[in-house]
C-alpha cells in the first residue's frame, strides 16, 4: 500500500516537473515568451516607453479624460479626432471604429513607430478605446500617449462593445 502510494507520488512529481521543463523549453523558442520573472503590465509599458525615449517612472492607469459615446461618435463622423484602438491586433483586424489606428499595449513602441504618429501634430484631439469598461489597456495607452507629448488625449471607457451596440460606423476587413 505504502509502496503504491510512493509510486503514485513519484509519478505525480514527474508530471509536475516534466510540465515545468517542457513549458520552459516551449517558452524558450517562442517569440512572445514570458520572462522568468513576470513583469506587470505597467512595467512592460514603461519598458515600451523607454524604447521611444521616455524613461521616468511607471505608467499608471488614469481616471481623467473620459469621453461619452455621443460626443465621440460626433467627432468620428466629422473626422475631427485621431482614434486609437488599444486592443490586440487580432481583435482590431476583426473590426474597429471607422478610421481607428491600432496601438496595443503589448508592443506599444513598435506600433507607435510604425504608425508615424510621433511626427504628427500632437495637439490634435485623440480618443483611445479598448474592449469595454473593464479593460485597462485604453487608459494605459492614453497615459503613454500623453507622455510622448500628445496634449489632448481622452478615453472612450465603454469601448468597442458599446460602439458596436450603438450601430455607429465600423470598419471590417473585406
Amino acid at each position: 500500500m505504502r509502496e503504491g502510494l510512493r509510486e503514485e507520488g513519484l509519478r505525480m512529481a514527474v508530471m509536475v516537473a516534466g510540465s515545468l521543463v517542457l513549458g520552459a523549453v516551449v517558452n524558450g523558442v517562442r517569440s512572445d515568451s514570458v520572462p522568468w520573472e513576470y513583469e506587470p503590465k505597467a512595467q512592460r509599458m514603461s519598458r515600451e516607453l523607454a524604447r521611444v525615449g521616455i524613461k521616468e517612472g511607471e505608467t499608471r492607469e488614469v481616471a481623467a479624460g473620459a469621453i461619452e459615446l455621443g460626443e465621440f461618435a460626433g467627432m468620428v463622423r466629422e473626422k475631427s479626432v485621431l482614434v486609437i484602438d488599444a486592443r490586440a491586433p487580432l481583435f482590431y483586424r476583426m473590426g474597429h471604429v471607422a478610421g481607428a489606428i491600432n496601438l496595443p499595449r503589448e508592443g506599444f513602441a513598435s506600433f507607435l513607430e510604425r504608425s508615424g504618429l510621433l511626427g504628427k501634430d500632437k495637439s490634435r484631439a485623440v480618443v483611445v478605446y479598448c474592449q469595454s469598461e473593464t479593460c485597462e489597456d485604453s487608459r494605459m495607452v492614453a497615459e503613454s500617449l500623453r507622455r510622448v507629448g500628445f496634449t489632448s488625449v481622452r478615453v472612450f471607457r465603454e469601448g468597442w462593445r458599446r460602439w458596436l451596440e450603438s450601430g455607429e460606423p465600423v470598419e471590417k476587413p473585406s
Partner: peptide, 8 residues
C-alpha cells in the same frame, strides 16, 4: 505557473 500549468 504560466509556463507549467498549460503543459500539465
Amino acid at each position: 505557473v504560466a509556463l507549467g500549468v498549460p503543459v500539465l
